[in-house]
Amino acid sequence: MITDRTLLFHRLAHAWVLLAMALQLPDADVLWTQAAGHSVLAGTWAAGLLDPYHFLPAGSVYLGNGLLAMLAVGGLFARPIWWRSAILWWLFVAWMNAAWPTSTGGHQLMANLLFWNIGLALPDRSRFLLARTTAFHIVRFQLLLAYLATTLHKLQGHAWLDGSALSQVASDPAWSLGWLAGLPVLARVFTWATLAFQALFPLAVWWPFTRSLFLAGGVVFHVSTGMLLGIPEMGAAFLVAYALWLPEGTARTILEAPRAAVRRLSPTS
């Protein structure tokens, strides 16, 4: 039987795809008409398979993304089915590779999560148990690896250790953090808090109390950075991955929240 947190993960992943598509829609006339420049997979075995729009006629991205949107909407309501998840993953990766200059780490994270979502959507039979369990653990470890990798990359430099990193980011007009440039002490506190959160997350999730604390902190962190830095897909992708770290009861509450809200608003109740 599919667990509540797996179902929540599946639905959030589909909602994420719709969010990413909605954000690109205003620029679809450029981004979806023609694949960007050269193929990012050129020279690998996967070029034709995972980057088909570089070989298909101009405008085919519209067709593929229409199907992708339909599958994403369907996934919000239907039970997970592995072949539908596989088509959704393939269409998403094809789109991401066609519009690669717009991609963020969040898109890459989702490409990985959607691949393993195929395993999670396998039928509820004992012969698929190994694949389903492996996919479950891979998604969980993927989240921890992302935090570990970003921490280790940051520890290679100086700005995150001496606390000046976010002041530097704030002084770059490309990011909407100008307000922080005039508050060096706050910028230093945010820099170290970010580093501490990312460094400790892979350890904190193994104990129930610290897990709840870090998941709640992570929601605040990813929502605020997603909005303030103009990369909402990045923050939202991490929140999708959080679903498999939630207790079953919390996942069930979140799944039932929309229905409960409708019931509360209904005049007959």
């Binding site: 620029d27 981004l31 994270l109 990359h153 940051k154 430099g157 100086h158 976010l166």
Partner: peptide, 29 residues
């Protein structure tokens, strides 16, 4: 996947295109 945003240090230089007219708005663009 790549996890090097603002790492090891944030970029020392900003980067922007300059064109004769106005660049159309849009977050993703």
């Amino acid at each position: 996947q790549w996890w090097g945003l603002f790492a090891p240090d944030p970029p020392a230089c900003s980067c922007d295109w300059s064109v004769p007219g106005r660049i159309p708005p849009g977050l993703v663009r």
